[in-house]
Amino acid sequence: MEINATQHPMDKYLRADRIPHIWCPGCGLGIVLNAFLRAIDELKIDLDKLAVVSGIGCTGRIAGYINTDSYHTTHGRAIPFATGLKLANPEMKVVVISGDGDLFAIGGNHFIHAARRNIDITVIGVNNYNYGMTGGQLGPTTPLGARTTTSPYGNIEHPFNLCHVAHAAGAVYVARWTVLHAVRLKNSIKEALQKKGFSFIEVIAACPTTYGRRNKMPDALDEMRFYREHSVIKHGIDPAEANIEIGKEIIVGKFVDIEKPTFNDAVEELKRKVKKK
């Protein structure tokens, strides 16, 4: 017999008074949150020294559920907020968790520049192919041909390959997983959190309510089964080769893991050099 419980082992990292969360049944965001908390747990990261920053949207709500210093900022601006926070308070571990629209449409400019500077933060970008919270509009990652509320005849725009963007902009760690790869995702988050510099993890997540049902995957399970059948792990592949197209395989894995001096170290070095006695 299963045992009825009222407390979950991850509750200690959650703002328990805010659970249940707002996400729809089958939404991948809960899995991302779970994987993040388990990564924190396994690394034994001091929650007093962790800051989670989100932008706006369904993913933007993640910050508010984690029992740490959490910042729910304006649409697209999580990364510059995190940049300021990390620079002002270098002892904090700063993580941005936000959605594809927030990070790559309205906030796209900030993403590439933070990666270029190699700001010492981790960005977890949840890609559900659309703007969920506002009702399923076309986003910067919506695959070509996909139906959304603002592409009712099928998307005619070419989407971003987020990992390729991150790599091209200079991120030192780039990985992609689907939410079905929950264990690998958790391990990847652990690696990213320990990585110095701008690390980026793209998580492909189901959005049954506003994306799936318009794209022949009305149930979250349909999307999850698709991940099971059509994702292929290719570590170390050039992210440029990992485009996402409707009906095609989803290439996942760790694509980039390099070393590069961070902006934060450069700032500290500069301070040491020019500081007035």
Binding site: I3, H8, P25, G26
Partner: peptide, 19 residues
Amino acid sequence: GRVYIIKDRCKQCGFCIEF
């Protein structure tokens, strides 16, 4: 494994059953 379920949190996505 001993399985614990917090029934009132479930939203019936079916993932645990399927996978």
